[in-house]
Structures are given as C-alpha cells and as structure tokens.
Design a protein around this nucleic acid. Sequence first.
DNA 1: CGTGTGATTTGTGTATACACTGATGGCGAT
DNA 2: ATCGCCATCAGTGTATACACAAATCACACG
Lengths: 231, 231
Amino acid sequence: MRAGDRAYQTLREEITNGDLPAGTVLGEVEQAVRLGISRTPVREALRQLISEGLAVQRPRGVEVSEVSFENISELYDVRLALECQAARLAARNRDADVFRTLLVDFQHVSDLLNTRDRNRHDYYELVNRLDDALDQAVRNPYLVSAMATVRTHLARIRHMARSDRARLMDAAREHALIVQAIIDGDGDLAAHATHVHLYNSLSHRLAKAASLETHSADAVSPDEGDARETA
Amino acid sequence: MRAGDRAYQTLREEITNGDLPAGTVLGEVEQAVRLGISRTPVREALRQLISEGLAVQRPRGVEVSEVSFENISELYDVRLALECQAARLAARNRDADVFRTLLVDFQHVSDLLNTRDRNRHDYYELVNRLDDALDQAVRNPYLVSAMATVRTHLARIRHMARSDRARLMDAAREHALIVQAIIDGDGDLAAHATHVHLYNSLSHRLAKAASLETHSADAVSPDEGDARETA
DNA sequence: CGTGTGATTTGTGTATACACTGATGGCGAT
DNA sequence: ATCGCCATCAGTGTATACACAAATCACACG
C-alpha cells in the first residue's frame, strides 16, 4: 500500500479517536519523522484531511479542526436530510434478506447489552453493519459519499457525548423500526422513522452535553471502555 | 497564490467546462509541462480532484471521471435531500432584505431572457446569487460543503442537457416561489417548493436526454453560446 | 507464423534539496 | 528601559532526482 494512504488512515484515525485533539498543529516534518516517511506523502495525507474537514489550513501550517457542541446540531441537520433520503431509497431497492438478518440482531440487542463486557462497542458494530447495508441498498455513490463524510465527523462527536445503556436500548427499537419499514418497502415510514430516531439521538446528545457543562468533565473523558459508567 | 491551488482551479474548470472530457488521462508530467509547474503541485491538485469525485484513480494513473445520464437521477436524489433542508433552514435564519432583492430579480427574468444576448448565462448568474444567499442563510458549514460538491457535479451535467428558454421561464417562477417562502419564513413551503422545482428540473433534463438519444447529438455539443438553438 | 520471454520505456511513488516567507530573538540606539 | 531593526531560523512551497512497477515491443525459439 502507498505510504500516503497509510499516513492518511493513521492520521484520520488518530483525529477521530481524539489522540490528536482539536487545535493540534500537524507539522509536515514532525509527522514525517513520526510516521517514518518523507514529507511528500505526509503533504498528500494532510490535503485529504483538509478536504474532508478534519483539518484546516492555517497561515501557520495545518491543524486539526475544531469540533464543538454547536457543531452537533449542524451536523445532525445534514445527517437528517441525507439519512431520511437514504432510508427512503433503501426501502425501494433493498435486498430483503440482508435487512431481515439485521432486524433479528436489533431485536436481540438486549441480550447483547446485558453482557457486561464491551457492549457499546458491539452495538456500534451492529450499527455499522446497518450503515453498510444502507450504502449497498441506496445504489447511489453520491449519497454514500456524502453520508460517509457526515459519519466521519459524527465519530469525533461520539467521544464527546456518549450514549448510555438505556439510550442504546431505545435506539435499538428505533433502528428495528427503520429496518422493518425497509423490509416492507415502505419508504415514507422508513424516512419518518429515521427522522424520529435522529431527533431522539440528537436530543440525548444535547442533554448529555448540557449535563457535562454543569458537572465536571472528568468522569467522561476516558476514550475507551464500555457504557457502564454512564448508565 | 500557490501553484497547487492554481493547478486545481484550472483543472477543475476544464473538467466542468468539458474541455477535459470524461476518460481523459491526467498524466502528472503531461499536466506539469502544460501548466508550467512541477509534478508536486500537480499531484496535489489531482488528489483534490479525486476526493471531490471529478477524477478517479486508475491502476494506470488518474483520469477524468465518467458522468452519464444515469448519474443525473442519483445526483438529484442527493440534491433534493440537501436543498430542501437548506431551504427550510434558510427560511428560519434568512436576512429578508437579501431575498427581497432576489425576488425582484426573479420576477423580472422575462426581461432578462428577452434580451437575445447571453441570456442563459445571465440567468445562471442569478441562480448563483440565490445559491450564495442560501449558503449565507443556512449558517451550516457542513450543509454548504455538501451542496458545493453536488453543484460541482451538476455543472458538468448542465453541459449535457441544457435548459431552453421556456424551461428557464418556468424555473424563474419556481425560484420566485422558493424565495417568497423564505422571505415569509415558511420553512415547509420553502422545502416543498424546492422539491417541486427540482422535480421539474430533473424531468426536463431527462426528457432532453431522451430526445438526444433519438436525435443526433451534434446540435447540442457546442459548449458556449446562448439558448437560442434549443428554445 | 505464433507465442513466450526479456529488455526498454513510460509513468507513478517517494525522498530530498533548494527557495522563500514569516516569526522570533537579540542587540543597539534613543 | 523600551522600542525598533536586523539577523537567524523554522517551516512550508516547489522542483528534481531516484526507485520501482507495469506495459509494450522486439527478438528468438518452438
């Protein structure tokens, strides 16, 4: 694989993970040394990060872009538009078997979440499978690409306002309804159920964010682990 | 300005103009010589074009991406989702004076189009002003960015299926309604009027495309000039 | 005459050298 | 002591040299 692509993926993951916090300056020489490559592929990676919005060009070089709580609502406005449309299109073109499998999994999420180990990670894995199935079903590269961008930024936000177990249970029911609508080929229901799900998801995140502003931020800063501490 | 940015803008415009047709291979050395710069900034420009979807990476280098009539519907599906949302948000945040000015202009489009010279160009200029006003009003960088991508691809398609004078007159009325709804702060109407407009726009383009498949394609291939020949 | 193999060539991927700009720190003058 | 100017330096922008991979063409062998 090309060094430039590896550098891009590495930096991208470090930014979404939070290892490279917002405002970090990404010096070309510094990153080149750290990644053991030359400046040329690093430059390539930085340009891609900029075009994706994960980094911004400053007069003094490139730095990791800011992501604030105000951004959450803006991001959800775009997400709402794209994913409702995606759900509608998926209901039209779907391979029913794929979504029937997903439906069963979403209906058994309570089992998944009762296992105390790594539950939230497993749930996000399931949501990723749903996203992949949607990407397949919409058969629209432009839409898939636009949603991928939104998901990238969303991944950064997940580290700021994490869902607790109760919210995950509700989310599973909402997801199950979306999947059911897609199986039934009911585009309107799929779109509206997505609307409902995203409204609830945003509300939960905003409430979480508000409670973080009043309380200390220490309790939620660790980036790994499971959902026990916030349940 | 940086050589890389100039190269990007140049190539980008040549692709959207159709000067560099789909399938053209963009050799690094070839473009570097042609633009009078070295390969490094050319590479940078090519990577940006790829991330924007205007070019694709092939095993044998980079080439201009294909844009077919099937893509039109897919692009409009994304456009529909984004612009309806944008209209809704704009109705909420708009600066009414800006849109009142635009409304007057859209109401006088018939004068603009009766002037036989450069009429379509002037109309697209007016639409650009509307787009800019929307970008300002939505106050959402994510949405603005997503719409910019769609508009870029749309610009390429405009050269394939051009609007005639009658369609432009109808479009002006549709645009005027959207603007009126935004002035009134009626988000639902703004969104639905946008939906109607995009449906009509797509229908017109598809009909045009179908008629091009039956007739000879010679009559519409020239890339400059005004709308007289298709009116 | 056809096919296979090897050499040449073309073009990308990467590293590095050079140039220029903007910042920073020190030194001198007021 | 403070302000201003000059020098040095850190870091990006660009060019170019080198490495490597793939495709093509030619030549030889079957």
